[in-house]
Amino acid sequence: MRPDEISAAIRAKFPQVKEEAGTNYIIVPKESILEVSEYIKNPPLSFDNLHCITGIDRKEKIEVIYTLYSIGEHYGVTIKINLTSEDLNIASVSAIWKSANWLEREVYDLFGVIFSGHPDLRRILNPYDWQGYPLRKDYSNPQLIAKPRL
């Protein structure tokens, strides 16, 4: 299946899912992440491999990006979820894909996105008593000396 076909297949099933303009990334409203995940994990789409979870701080919102692949079928899909800075709660998919466990912890550690239903949501890279979320654009720390820009 080509990326646009995958995106069309998911959108046919879930009308609330959108496609990002210019790409084949699909944008899922945060309420429906669990049911979409459940659906695409199983055949016919069978995305059995949650490869990567990324956060991006867009200042007014935080995007969480899931990169998924299917080992058997040789295709992939990228799912995007937009979170407003007021409400950073999102359902955890770690019950569906085990790899999400650490990947979600990392996003929590660096961006402060709260994955509800996660079995063990602690910081992972930074010390457990660390303050702040370092990869947010407005993060500051006396340790951090910025390199002069070009």
Partner: peptide, 8 residues
């Protein structure tokens, strides 16, 4: 890792 790091 002198510049721009918060953890070194």
């Amino acid at each position: 890792f002198y510049y721009d790091t918060y953890s070194v």
